[in-house]
């Protein structure tokens, strides 16, 4: 399970996922409260430092940050307009954009420096108080089963698309989706049967 994780040996990589998750939550709240452009600038610098510490080029965070900048192109002018184009309007809009950037970059840093397995384990620990309602074994099984099923379903989608191309048919999305869903359900039946055969019948 590699995912978006960037392998490394930095302090940030080695820190326990649960600790990082806690710090991230605290940081998010603090960033949300910032009302001074200077403090925000300091935080931005701190984020850049953290990326340097993790040995991750900020470009690695681009796929996560990029789409948000596009939304800012819309959101900043709207905010200025709402504030009547005043100087305060620009300050508010700038602060909002900066806060968003810092928060997104921090969350992305967490994802880039923490393996999926470690995050899932952290989730499991957080779920412990709810063990009366949530069976950790079943959750673990479902998670593994889903990761196993993704290539299986991707293969089904590919085969259905190929079959359509082979017939030269230019069918609707419905004509594509029905066989994909029905074949996925049959695959689920077969997997359910295999789970039972392998001793998971409780």
């Amino acid at each position: 399970m590699i995912g978006l994780y960037r392998p490394g040996t930095s302090l940030l990589h080695r820190a326990p996922a649960l600790l990082k998750l806690g710090l991230l939550a605290v940081a998010m709240v603090l960033v949300g409260l910032v009302a001074d452009p200077l403090v925000l600038a300091g935080e931005l610098a701190a984020v850049v430092l953290l990326y340097a510490l993790a040995g991750i080029p900020p470009t690695a965070a681009w796929p996560q940050i990029g789409p948000i900048l596009w939304i800012l192109l819309f959101a900043v002018p709207v905010q200025v307009l709402v504030a009547g184009g005043s100087v305060e309007g620009w300050t508010t809009a700038g602060l909002m954009a900066g806060r968003l950037l810092v928060a997104v970059a921090l969350a992305a840093l967490f994802t880039l420096t923490t393996t999926v397995t470690a995050v899932l384990e952290a989730f499991q620990i957080l779920l412990r108080p709810f063990h009366r309602w949530v069976d950790a074994d079943r959750v673990g099984l479902l998670v593994a089963l889903t990761i196993r099923c993704i290539p299986l379903v991707a293969e089904i989608v590919r085969e259905v698309l190929d079959a359509r191309r082979a017939r030269g048919a230019q069918g609707s999305v419905v004509a594509l989706a029905v066989p994909v869903v029905v074949r996925s359900l049959y695959a689920a039946d077969a997997i359910g049967e295999a789970l039972a055969a392998r001793g998971l019948d409780d």
Binding site: R132, W133, V134, D135, R138, V139, L141, L142, L145, T146, R148, C149, I150, L152, V153, A154, V157, V180, V181, S184, L185, A187, A188, D189, I191, G192, E193, L195, A196, L200, D201
Partner: peptide
């Protein structure tokens, strides 16, 4: 558990639909 009464077939259907949404 919220999962207790789910059959193995239900579990497989849940996993395969999660995979389908991803795909």
């Amino acid at each position: 558990s919220a999962f207790a009464r789910l059959s193995v077939r239900d579990l497989a259907q849940i996993a395969i639909f999660a995979a389908l949404i991803a795909a």
